Simulated assay, not measured.
Amino acid sequence: MKVSRVTLRHVKMEMKFSFTTSFGSLQEKEFLLLEAIDEDGLTGWGESVAFPAPWYNEETLKTNWHMLEDFLIPALLHKEIHHPSEISQLFSHIRKNNMAKSTIEGAMWDLYAKQHAAPLFTLLGGKRKTIDVGVSIGIQKSISDLLEIIRAHVNEGYKRIKVKIKPGWDVDVLKEIRHHFPTLPLMADANSAYTLADVERLKELDPLQLLMIEQPLASDDIVDHAKLQRQITTPICLDESIHSYDDARKAIELGSCKIINIKIGRVGGLTEAKRIHDLCAERNVAVWCGGMLEAGIGRAHNVALSTLGNFILPGDTAGSARYWEKDIIKPEVIVRNGEIHVPVNPGIGYEPDLHSIEQYTIYQQTYS
């Protein structure tokens, strides 16, 4: 497998709504698309999940472009690669920058699957023909607005509801949700908004029987999370703290969490995501696939990953229509009764919509 040409695109899409977390609000989604073309003209596609500003982690859209243009693409172009799992070793001399690495590695997995005329999910070892999905809801203007949105998604059949919380928008909000939806599979995502000084406040969540609280403490912490988990019964799920297999191993050994959210971009690509999945399966730690407000290419990679056996909790891969008037793939990702039917076409299973991609592209550059 040898790549002869790479096209990198800066894309901007308008979301249907403003998505608010403890970090801030976002409605215009800017991201990068990478198209890798082999010597026979086959193409593979990857999507960067880095935001324009370093809200989620230290990476940004611009730093991803810089890393891809100046380091990662030159390291890969015209090199003979036998399997996408080799790419992480090829990039091992470049520290971190996982989202940039994931962008190009995802394209190579897609290309490899197309070269073998196989669906990507089967090459990853996935078995599921359908995956259960939940939905992530940002902080709203009022509890009544939030309840209305939850009710609409429950009626659509989503299998799990995640709500964003922060100090001042947490216990009372979740109590009200639980009052109206006593049996709803419900979780809270704190995006690192708390410290150990908030233990007593977080203990108030225990009677609400949440599926989990996601990343309550600092984004680079696993020690204090272990202290917190010993004091609350609500399962802790780690997100931002897990960037690699070794991070996951250490967190599990310390007892920092009972669940891990695997995001492909955060851990550097599908190869590392699968390694973390396999580790968690061995240690009886449940995993699920988190979302980063992806457009269709990134969403398709999430669908493929979620077919692996230990993804036993519904992920954040909601349907395209929830976010976009028109997505950049055909067909779009469709959710019916809380499930996505996994496509069986070669590669990611969805066809990039080149017309829409061109419509949303601000700037592009080709490297050969």
Score class of each variant (00 low, 15 high):
D246C: 07
A300V: 00
W109A: 03
A321K: 07
P331E: 10
E351K: 03
F311I: 02
T7P: 08
Q27I: 09
S142H: 09
E253S: 12
S219C: 05
W169D: 05
L186V: 13
R160C: 02
R299E: 01
H93G: 07
F19V: 05
R266N: 12
L184E: 04
P167E: 06
K62A: 13
K250Y: 11
G106H: 08
I252T: 00
T122I: 05
K258D: 11
T366D: 07
T60I: 04
E240W: 02
H116L: 13
I232D: 12
R275G: 06
G126C: 02
G126L: 08
S88T: 14
V133N: 07
I177G: 04
I139H: 05
H301G: 00
K2Q: 15
C289I: 09
R249E: 14
S256G: 02
R283A: 12
P52V: 10
N57D: 12
V199M: 10
K263E: 02
D278L: 14
R151V: 09
D327Q: 04
A318M: 11
Q215F: 09
A118F: 02
R95T: 11
I94D: 13
D206F: 14
Y112K: 08
A248C: 08
E14G: 12
R178D: 06
A318G: 07
N284S: 14
K162S: 03
P74S: 06
E332V: 05
E39S: 13
N98Q: 13
I260N: 01
H153Q: 14
L147D: 12
A193F: 05
P216C: 12
P331L: 09
Y350I: 01
R151H: 15
T366A: 09
M1N: 00
N337I: 07
D170N: 08
K79A: 10
L211R: 13
D189H: 05
M99L: 15
E47L: 04
F121P: 03
L174E: 06
P343T: 07
I104D: 00
V344G: 11
M1Q: 00
P185W: 06
K2W: 10
E148D: 13
